[in-house]
Write a protein that binds this DNA or RNA. Sequence first.
DNA 1: GCCAACGTTGGC
DNA 2: GCCAACGTTGGC
Length: 149
Amino acid sequence: MKSEPDECCIDDIKDSTDQCIPWQGIRNYQARNYIRDNIQVGEQVFFYHSSCKEPGIVGIVEVVSDASADVSAFDNTSPYFDAKSSPEKPRWYSIDLKFGRKFPKVIRLKQLKADPALAEMVLVAKGARLSVQPVTVQEWQHISKLAGE
DNA sequence: GCCAACGTTGGC
DNA sequence: GCCAACGTTGGC
């Protein structure tokens, strides 16, 4: 899962109440489908910082809730407001994320791109903009090793 | 700030 | 349903 650290960095999750935050603001259908239909409670997720000085994977968070209606879409003062989403018929969903751990150092996008073992990873594909992306078991294990785990 | 690569919107 | 115009993402 990607986030702009200016918006929400991994330390924001770590420092929040119960080290847990509602992950709101997904406004892309494909990303929504992932969190609504594929992600399971208890799953671990790589947390990626984008649009920043050092883009890369910074750590791991855990999914601690099923997807439910993203209430920020109902709030007309929110930047994520969407008049076409309603409590009766929500268009967007959110999940709760809990801080897992931070890697000793950022695994930079540059490093991921240069790694032959990760050539097929969605994240390094050209034009991959999705904020929620699948990771294979092999990729997960490989990156965990890079992180020194 | 540039721009490539997507995604979305809306007229037809 | 097509597709041009526009908006967004995100690395560089």
